[in-house]
Amino acid sequence: MNAGPQGRDPALAGCRIIVSGNSAAHDPVSSRGAGTTVRELAQVLAGAGARVSRIAPQRLRAPAPAVLRRAVLRTGSGGVDAVVFASSAASWIAAAEVLGVLDTHRRRAEAGRLLLVTSDPADADGLHRAELPARRVADPAELAHAVVAHYQGGSASLPTDAGRLEVRSGGVVVDEHFIPLSRGGSGVIEALFLARGRVLSRAEIGRSLPGRERSGRAVEVAVARLRESLDGRELVQTVVKRGYRLAVTER
């Protein structure tokens, strides 16, 4: 999908989305009959600007394979914006619990930074039992539309001094304009967004940086590069001797 009316960026620009389900061309999203396939679902999401990864569901009692573990860990650390469960969510929930990232899933989902969506009532119940906010779509054919509509509607945004802010794994959207960011910049802005205006110390922000270099100096460099990428938009404020905060507009 190209930019929308009046040159707007694609609805899912900067979003990384995981589709959990069998990827065979003939396998429908729903076991209740023919309809949209997982491949077609992924294509629609990619056409709306998202980077889409597909993973196959696993047996619940089987050890989580490396691809599932990586996907779950990346989701917990802020590198994924949405997970669409076209098949059972049970193995994903179990892996998140074993890997110790169920709480970060909850925190991100509650803040609107992680969309979990399914069309299966049992999956919806399982996600809710795990205290993971999830959206259930009655018609499996509408899964992709539900994701696009979520982001077109502003998903979870915050008013800031620079404009209305949405955070995505690949950057930020400020007043409907997408700005790509590096992994380090995305990690910093994610942490500040989740804090919702609360001041974060350099140590707290350092935990959001990729790699092993998380010193105070590394945080200062990451923040400086983030500000440069934002091209003068005043989104990050320095609080002397304390750290940094998102420039949330006071109400």
Rank of each mutant, 00 (worst) to 15 (best):
V83M: 11
A56L: 03
Q6Y: 12
E40T: 11
G187I: 10
A82G: 13
R168Q: 07
S77P: 01
S155P: 00
S169N: 01
A222L: 07
V167H: 13
I93D: 02
L99H: 14
P140M: 06
G232W: 13
H150G: 00
G163M: 12
I18L: 15
R70S: 14
T249L: 15
G187V: 11
P210F: 06
A144Y: 10
H150V: 00
L45H: 03
R16F: 09
D123E: 06
A134F: 08
T37W: 11
T36A: 12
R32V: 09
G100H: 08
Q58C: 14
A90C: 11
A134Y: 02
V174D: 08
A56G: 02
S30W: 07
S208I: 03
C15V: 05
R32M: 13
V173T: 12
G7N: 13
G4Q: 09
A109W: 03
G78L: 06
A48E: 15
G14C: 11
L235E: 00
R214A: 04
G126T: 11
P63W: 10
R32Y: 13
G171D: 06
I18V: 15
A130V: 05
L12Y: 09
L115C: 03
G206H: 04
R74K: 01
S208H: 09
V199N: 00
T75S: 14
G112N: 02
D120S: 12
A96C: 13
S23T: 14
A149H: 08
P210C: 00
A141W: 06
D175P: 01
S169V: 12
E176P: 00
V19T: 09
L116W: 04
S169I: 02
E220Y: 00
P180W: 04
N22D: 14
A222N: 10
T160N: 06
H105W: 15
L116S: 04
A195V: 05
T104M: 01
V80H: 10
A25V: 15
R233N: 09
V84E: 09
E176W: 05
G243A: 04
V83S: 00
V236P: 01
V137M: 01
A134K: 01
V38E: 05
A46H: 04
P210A: 13
G232I: 10
E176S: 09
P210E: 12
E166Q: 14
T104N: 06
D123F: 12
L116D: 04
A25S: 09
L230M: 05
G197P: 00
V223A: 08
R207I: 07
E234M: 06
P63Q: 11
